[in-house]
Design a protein around this nucleic acid. Structure first.
Length: 389
DNA sequence: ATGTGC
């Protein structure tokens, strides 16, 4: 359930609904700033994993009638998660096999800044139409021409990852967290600049009925599509490697894919709205949602409840509780290894991986408890092996 | 998040 903050004397126009039990003062300030913009309607919702970010807090959901807000989405347009139920039995995956899989994935899939050294997909097998759909400027089309082949099929850095998980029945799942890479970033920054030029204040909006707003919508839709194709390319590559290691063709029986950095046209309270979600997912009724924990703790498949209280949204993950700097300073290598003892990961990267240690995230069960009115958990996924970006 | 950016 949520609690409400509404202080109109501080300029707030709509109430803030908070699903998180712990929220820092700087996160509240960001939510209040958002709730003071003239384009927001109904309310601003902060999901159970809300935390401070650049401009707008991660975990923010808000809606407008005809305004798009580039600065409210961040750079990684269309970032999200895929989960593929694959036809592999967890009992057949011993630790040694998982180590081979992780090492092969690490060599085959460009992670972090490896994109700069030449990347993922070859030009020949780009998905249909991805290069042909127009973008709003020649400059962006040039950037796409140069980067598309390089960026498709690359993982990226930070909290992006590939993971193998098992469910309670011994079924194995492939999880992918990635987005629209540098190309999405180029689109995002182009429109953030355009919005600022037209409107001096911080969280500048663009009207969809004007050309600049319509251009952003067109490019945003493309970036979101590209991000999904990128996750698909990563998953395809991972399945090829699994097939190779297991000496048989591994296929996906079932795929879930959710964005958590996007704008969607949806109808709420009897009117069409542009729902902005930054680090939040849509949880439509009966449809499956996907909520990762951390690389050492469980992730969950859930059913959305389409609760109008949050514009039918829920949290996109567990939410950080510790900064990367803090993690590097305070987490001892031994404690890190202990918290990851059940999961296979590239040992050589342990020093860098502490930034993503299980203890830098909130307990996913608590985060799910905080939003029981938004979703129903159905499948618990235990991590077996992880490759971080 | 980011071929990070003045």
């Amino acid at each position: 359930m949520f609690r409400v903050i509404f202080e109109p004397d501080r300029g707030q126009r709509v109430p803030i609904r908070l699903w998180a039990r712990h929220v820092g003062p700087d996160t509240i300030r960001q939510l209040q700033r958002l709730a003071s913009q003239d384009y927001v309607v109904e309310f601003v919702a902060a999901m159970a994993d809300a935390h401070v970010s650049e401009g707008v807090a991660v975990g923010s959901v808000f809606a407008t009638e005809h305004t798009l807000v580039p600065a409210a989405l961040g750079g990684d347009l269309g970032c999200g998660m895929s989960a593929l139920r694959i036809d592999v039995d967890a009992f057949g995956l011993d630790r040694r096999t998982l180590e081979i899989v992780v090492s092969r994935l690490g060599r085959a899939i460009p992670t972090g800044d490896a994109t700069h050294r030449g990347g993922g997909a070859s030009r020949a097998n780009l998905p249909e139409g991805l290069l042909e759909t127009p973008l709003s400027t020649r400059s962006l089309e040039h950037t796409r021409e140069a980067l598309l082949g390089r960026h498709l099929g690359t993982l990226g850095g930070g909290n992006h990852f590939l993971e193998l998980d098992r469910d309670a029945d011994g079924g194995v799942w492939l999880l992918v967290h990635s987005g629209s890479r540098g190309l999405g970033g180029a689109i995002a920054s182009h429109h953030a600049r355009a919005a600022e030029e037209r409107n001096a204040h911080g969280l500048a909006g663009m009207d969809i009925r004007e050309s600049a707003g319509a251009a952003y919508w067109q490019d945003l839709e493309w970036a979101i599509r590209f991000a999904r194709e990128n996750r698909r390319a990563l998953a395809t590559r991972a399945l090829e490697i699994l097939s190779d290691v297991l000496h048989r063709e591994v296929t996906a029986a079932d795929t879930i894919d959710v964005h958590h950095n996007f704008v969607a046209r949806e109808e709420w309270f009897g009117r069409p709205l542009f729902v902005h979600r930054k680090g939040a997912i849509a949880a439509p009724r009966g449809d499956r949602a996907l909520i990762p924990g951390s690389m050492g703790t469980a992730s969950y498949v859930a059913f959305g409840l389409a609760n109008a209280d949050s514009f039918g949204s829920c949290s996109h993950g567990a939410g950080r509780v510790m900064t990367r700097t803090e993690a590097r300073r305070t987490i001892r290598p031994k404690a890190f290894a202990e918290s990851m003892r059940r999961v296979v990961y590239p040992d050589a990267l342990a020093r860098r991986l502490v930034e993503e240690a299980p203890c830098v995230y909130r307990d996913i069960r608590e985060v799910l408890d905080d939003q029981e009115d938004l979703l129903v958990r159905t499948i618990r996924l235990e991590p077996l092996a992880v490759l971080k970006g």
